[in-house]
Design a protein around this nucleic acid. Structure first.
Lengths: 231, 231
DNA sequence: CACCATAACCGCACTCAGTGCAGTTCTGCA
DNA sequence: TGCAGAACTGCACTGAGTGCGGTTATGGTG
């Protein structure tokens, strides 16, 4: 059976759908509880289902696997990024738009404070299968965003360049975050993390920002971005 | 039991080790054969072990899982990149070094012509668990390379910036390559794949090439790389 | 050559993830 | 009220992966 996501009667949320959403949330909560208490590998799907008062078999009509419990809002960030691209100003270049989209995604982290998000970060670093799933979701998101970016700048970016640009941005931010979050001293101060990410992305993406100033023809020693690497 | 990799008697390769290497290769070959004939999900580990004339249980002393069969030379590319970093010239900056390292990794694809490599590319696009594993390996490789890059330029890159730079490069090339390989016309011809890799690296790394031509001062309309986006 | 420590091999039994099937219950709607 | 369809659930099954214990083969040593 496929996992339902929307409601059938568009104007009204039916009892069925409300019940379903409640059970779904109960599963996520129970999983978070058990993952924190017993560990990811030690928690079985049967445990989670029992804690949410459903049969083991029924679990699989809500989530396709144990990892999915950690990413219940899969494409929310993607939608935010796409919206940021859609609401671009007339003078913005591809890099500016993408930068703003990613900053919005990163800053909209009500995420970073929630218990599930913290647990997710820890399990991504700890459990290989979770990391694999996270990377896969990120990769799919990149693809989606790159497509919209190419559509937004049809005369300045072909599909390959848009993908490269998006991949560079996301890769820079992700890698910087990985190093920062592995340092056990940085944790607990979101402002520090954010500042370090900004600095690192400036270093990594300086060429892209310069290139997006004009259509890749003019010299641009003048509008150099704020943080070149130290001499 | 842990999977053995080296030989004990350093000067000589013992019979035991030669036998072990032979069985290991037989497993990879049998797996490639069966994956191509029956598909990845349809092939069980028991099938592969039987085709290589070993017991099902013994398989797990050679590979930890079915995915690992597709990445038998896990860190060869990483070592190539690290070597490229180590053999840098005195005037090279971080971007040049990283650029050369990635080009070398892409070109050293004796890989790209082999049957296993083509199969791997197809399965990465097709089978989610394989894609997840590939991304995870790539992520670990990035981390390793970034560490060496930071060590090579201790006064110009901190660890976070090195990670961001590496992530940007690898992310750009990977994303560009993904778009190129998803076009269904390229498939089936190793030369086409190689051309796609070149084009992907060109497009993805062009901004850094322009930026690294001089110390960010001169115009670079002259040495423009072959594939800028269409006007 | 004989011996022994060790590593590899392998069957067996087990747990858990995930799926197909069939029977039952519940919900929305006419 | 009744009905069509969706959801819930148990059962049986396959396959991945692990732990254990017994057996065999190898390599080094006296």
């Amino acid at each position: 059976m496929l996992v339902r996501v929307g409601c059938r009667t568009l104007g009204r949320v039916s009892l069925r759908d409300r019940k379903r959403a409640r059970v779904r949330q109960a599963l996520v909560d129970a999983a978070a509880e058990l993952f924190e208490r017993d560990g990811y590998d030690e928690t079985t799907i049967a445990d989670i289902a029992a804690a949410a008062d459903i049969g083991t078999r029924t679990f699989f009509s809500y989530f396709a696997s144990k990892e999915e419990l950690l990413f219940p809002e899969g494409d929310a960030r993607v939608r935010a990024a796409i919206e940021a691209i859609a609401s671009r100003g007339p003078d913005d270049g591809p890099a500016e738009v993408l930068l703003r989209a990613l900053r919005k995604v990163g800053d909209d982290g009500d995420d970073l404070t929630s218990r599930l998000a913290a647990l997710r970060l820890r399990l991504i670093r700890t459990v290989p299968v979770v990391r694999g799933r996270a990377l896969q979701l990120q990769f799919d998101a990149q693809r989606e965003i790159a497509g919209h970016l190419a559509s937004a700048f049809p005369e300045r970016l072909d599909r390959v360049s848009a993908a490269a640009l998006t991949g560079a941005f996301v890769g820079a931010v992700t890698s910087a975050l990985q190093v920062l979050l592995d340092d056990p001293d940085q944790i607990g101060d979101p402002a520090e993390v954010r500042a370090a990410v900004h600095r690192a992305t400036d270093v990594a993406l300086t060429p892209w920002l310069r290139a997006s100033g004009g259509p890749w023809t003019e010299a641009s020693g003048a509008n150099r971005p704020p943080s070149p690497p130290p001499p």
